[in-house]
Amino acid sequence: MDKFSDMTMFVSIVKHQGLAAAGRELGLSPATMTARLQALEERYRVKLLNRSTRHVSLTDAGELYYKASLEILDNVNETENLILNGVKEVKGALRVAAPKDIGKQYILPILSEFCEKYPDVVPYLYLNDDVSNIAESGIDIVVRYGELADSSLISRRLSSSHRVLCASPDYLAKYGTPLTPQDLINHHCLAMVRSHEELKTWHFQGSDKKNVITVLPKRFSDDGEVVRYWALEGAGIALKSILDVQDDINNRRLVTVLNGYMANFNTSTSVSSADLNVVYMSKKYQPKRIRLFLDFLLERFETMKNGGK
Results as ranks from 00 to 15, higher is better:
residue 223 D to E: 12
residue 129 D to Q: 15
residue 207 S to C: 10
residue 197 E to H: 14
residue 302 E to R: 14
residue 103 G to A: 03
residue 2 D to I: 01
residue 37 L to Y: 01
residue 29 S to E: 12
residue 173 A to R: 15
residue 20 A to D: 15
residue 8 T to V: 11
residue 276 L to I: 11
residue 30 P to M: 13
residue 289 R to S: 04
residue 115 C to T: 04
residue 211 N to G: 02
residue 257 V to Y: 11
residue 47 K to F: 06
residue 33 M to I: 05
residue 270 S to D: 15
residue 123 P to F: 01
residue 283 K to A: 10
residue 65 Y to R: 04
residue 247 D to P: 11
residue 7 M to H: 07
residue 161 S to Y: 11
residue 66 Y to V: 05
residue 259 N to V: 10
residue 230 W to L: 08
residue 256 T to Y: 07
residue 200 K to I: 11
residue 196 H to Y: 14
residue 168 S to A: 13
residue 129 D to Y: 15
residue 92 G to Y: 01
residue 187 H to K: 15
residue 294 L to N: 00
residue 8 T to A: 04
residue 137 S to H: 08
residue 201 T to D: 12
residue 109 P to S: 07
residue 258 L to D: 02
residue 223 D to T: 12
residue 241 S to E: 06
residue 308 G to R: 04
residue 292 L to T: 04
residue 69 S to E: 02
residue 167 A to G: 04
residue 140 D to A: 02
residue 154 I to Q: 10
residue 40 L to M: 03
residue 278 V to Q: 09
residue 130 D to F: 09
residue 205 Q to R: 07
residue 251 N to C: 15
residue 168 S to Q: 05
residue 24 R to K: 14
residue 102 I to L: 13
residue 248 D to I: 07
residue 79 T to G: 12
residue 97 A to I: 05
residue 172 L to Q: 07
residue 272 S to E: 15
residue 294 L to Q: 02
residue 256 T to I: 06
residue 261 Y to T: 08
residue 30 P to A: 14
residue 152 S to G: 10
residue 203 H to K: 07
residue 152 S to M: 12
residue 243 L to W: 04
residue 131 V to N: 06
residue 249 I to T: 03
residue 7 M to V: 00
residue 112 S to W: 04
residue 279 V to A: 02
residue 248 D to Q: 11
residue 105 Q to I: 09
residue 231 A to N: 04
residue 100 K to F: 10
residue 64 L to A: 06
residue 34 T to I: 02
residue 257 V to Q: 05
residue 52 S to N: 04
residue 214 T to W: 12
residue 73 L to Y: 02
residue 273 S to Y: 08
residue 298 L to R: 06
residue 203 H to W: 08
residue 131 V to G: 03
residue 191 A to Y: 03
residue 55 H to N: 13
residue 36 R to D: 00
residue 147 E to N: 14
residue 187 H to Y: 14
residue 221 S to A: 11
residue 156 R to T: 15
residue 55 H to F: 09
residue 218 K to G: 13
residue 10 F to Y: 03
residue 165 L to N: 03
residue 68 A to P: 11
residue 133 N to S: 06
residue 140 D to K: 02
residue 219 R to E: 15
residue 183 D to T: 03
residue 43 R to H: 12
residue 207 S to T: 14
residue 20 A to I: 15
residue 305 K to M: 11
residue 26 L to W: 04
residue 113 E to L: 06
residue 52 S to G: 13
residue 61 A to R: 14
residue 178 P to Q: 07
residue 25 E to W: 09
